[in-house]
């Protein structure tokens, strides 16, 4: 059987809010090392990769590798019934066709049990090669969310450029154009408010803003976001989940004809 008990149940709630509108049905691959998920969005332009390591759970048991086929909208509906401070336990039998979610209130005076049917999903996994990216930018996730939202009101594609100065976001549309530059900034009190740029090669790529917007639904998961870029490769937008793993989004670029 599989059982995972997460003291910070709000993390799982936030993960579902971040991916439920991008991916419809997917397998949660459970193994003794944790829970992994990899899925493309319906238009095959973006890829989501989630890892929740077993060490991040208060209690974790997985006797046999299980692929739990789940409709994310339905799972999100059930997780919405959990309080932000609840402990969430996921459970599934090896040969079962359901998954149960148990929510325990902080002082254990309210215990909720939800059971959801599983689906058979034959997902082919893509091989994501390890890449030495030409540019890696870490910045406040709220800042990235704000920039993407603001640019989306002006245009539908963003050119993201990285130089040793910093990272720039540009767009244009019917009403005009916009360019936002975030400089490297390490003289701030909290590390999480820093913008750091690791650059090996200046790089500039074009992406559809509606996907970047969708990725920023993960902002609640981490105060920082890391953007990794290389010429003619998908951008990686990564939200680290403290002590647990990460939620990564890969977005294919738009290339000039």
């Amino acid at each position: 059987m599989f059982e995972g008990r997460l003291l910070q149940g709000s993390l799982l709630k936030k993960v579902l809010e971040a991916i439920k509108d991008l991916v419809t049905d997917t397998n949660f691959d459970c193994s003794e090392t944790g829970i992994a998920l990899q899925a493309m969005d319906s238009s095959h332009v973006a890829l989501v990769s989630l890892l929740l390591k077993d060490t991040g759970f208060d209690h974790f048991r997985c006797d046999r590798n299980l692929a739990l086929g789940i409709n994310l909208q339905n799972m999100s509906k059930m997780l919405k019934c959990a309080g932000n401070d609840d402990i969430i336990t996921l459970k599934a039998e090896d040969e079962g066709d359901t998954i149960t979610f148990m929510f325990e209130s902080p002082n254990q005076d309210k215990i909720s049990d939800f059971e959801m049917k599983l689906m058979d999903i034959d997902s082919e996994h893509l091989g994501i090669p390890d890449t030495d990216y030409q540019a890696i930018v870490t910045m406040p996730s709220a800042e990235f969310q704000r920039i993407v939202r603001d640019l989306s009101s002006i245009g539908d594609t963003a050119v993201i450029g990285v130089t040793k100065e910093g990272i720039s976001f540009s767009t244009g549309g019917d009403i005009g154009k916009a360019n936002i530059v975030c400089r490297q900034n390490t003289n701030v009190d909290k590390e999480e408010d820093q913008t750091t740029v690791e650059i090996h090669e200046p790089v500039s790529l074009t992406f559809a803003l509606r996907y970047l917007n969708s990725f920023t639904k993960a902002t609640a998961l981490s105060p920082q976001v890391t953007l990794s870029l290389s010429k003619e490769l998908p951008i990686v937008v990564e939200y680290k989940i403290e002590k647990m793993g990460f939620l990564r989004f890969y977005l294919a670029p738009k290339i000039e004809e």
Partner: peptide
């Protein structure tokens, strides 16, 4: 504004 590529064209199916 360029042609959208697909993510699968970058990451081969395993």
């Amino acid at each position: 504004k360029g042609r959208q590529t697909s993510i699968a064209s970058f990451f081969g199916a395993k």
